[in-house]
Amino acid sequence: MNVYYFLGKGGVGKTTVSAAWSVGLAKKGLKTLVASIDPAHNLGDAFATPISDRIMHINAHLDAVEVNIEEMIRAYLNELSTKMKNTYRYLSAMNIDRYFDILKNSPGIEEYATMEAIKRLIALRDYDAVVFDTPPTGMTIRVLAMPPVSLVWTEQLIKMRKRILSTRGMVERVQGKFEAEVDGEKVVLSSSEKEDPIMQELLSYREELRALRDMLSSDYSYVNIVTMAEDLALFETKRIIKLLDGFKIKVRNIFLNKFFEIKNPPDEIKGKIEEQEKVIEKMKTEIKGIEIKDIPLLRKSPRGIDELFNIYSKYLA
C-alpha cells in the first residue's frame, strides 16, 4: 500500500490536488481511499457530493471519508474517563471530569487524534493506496513529527520506570513481597517489567511509535507539498522540506498551484507574474531531488470526478 500526504497552507488547493490524485489512482485500477483529516473539510465540495465520517463509495475503485477528529477526541476521552472512574474510586470524589475537560483542549491532543486516524485508515488492508488531505501545514508538521518526538519521551520514561522497578526490587529482596495500600486496597507492587502495567504500556507504545516513524520515512510514503509561486510560499516550502528531512521524511513532489499562464497579462498582474517566474527559477536552483509540477490558475474550480480526472491527466500524472 502506498500512502500519499498532501501538505500546504490553507487555501493553496490541497483538497483539489489530493482529490484529483485519488481519482487518477482509482482510474488506473488501484483500490483507493481518499481521506480528509483537515478539520475544515472540503472533500465533499471537490467531489460535488456530500461525504461523511463513514467511508463511502465514490466509484468502483474509489472510497472517501471526512474524519471527524473532534468526535474522535471526545469519544476517546469519554472512554478513558469511564475507565479511570472505575479504576480510581476515590478520584470520582475529585470530580475527574473537570480534568478531562482540560485534556480535551490540551496541546497535542489534536495531533494525537489525527495520528490515530491515520493509523486506523492505513490499517485497513483493503486498499492499494490511501490519500490524505491534511490540515494546514503547521498542524500537519506537528502530526508527522509526533512519532519521533514521542519516541524520545517514551525512551526516557522507560529508563525512569526501570529505575523505579529496580528500587522496588531492592525493597523486595530485603522484606519480600512489596505491598502498598492504593485506593483502600492492598496491592502487590511488582519489580518485574513483565508484571508492571505501566512498563508494558510504555514498551507497547514504543513499538507502535517505531512502526509509525518507519512507515512515514519508508518508500511507501509520499509526502507532497501544494504551494504557490510566491516568495513567502517558497520560504515556507524550504522550511518544511528541511524540517521533514530532520525526521527522515522525504518530500517527493511540489505542486505549484494557481500558476499564472496568461499570454497577454493585464498590467495589474504583471508584477505577480514576474514574481512567479523568479520564484520558479529559485525553486529549481535551490530545491534539488524533488519534482516540481505546475497547475495553472483555472477559470473555475474543478468539481466532480470528470473535472478532477482532467486535472490529474493534464497536470499531475
Partner: peptide, 16 residues
C-alpha cells in the same frame, strides 16, 4: 510528554 503517552499510561497510575 506528548498527550498520547500520558493517555496510554494514565489508567495504570493509581499508586503514583
Amino acid at each position: 510528554p506528548p498527550t498520547g503517552i500520558v493517555l496510554r499510561i494514565l489508567p495504570h497510575m493509581s499508586r503514583e
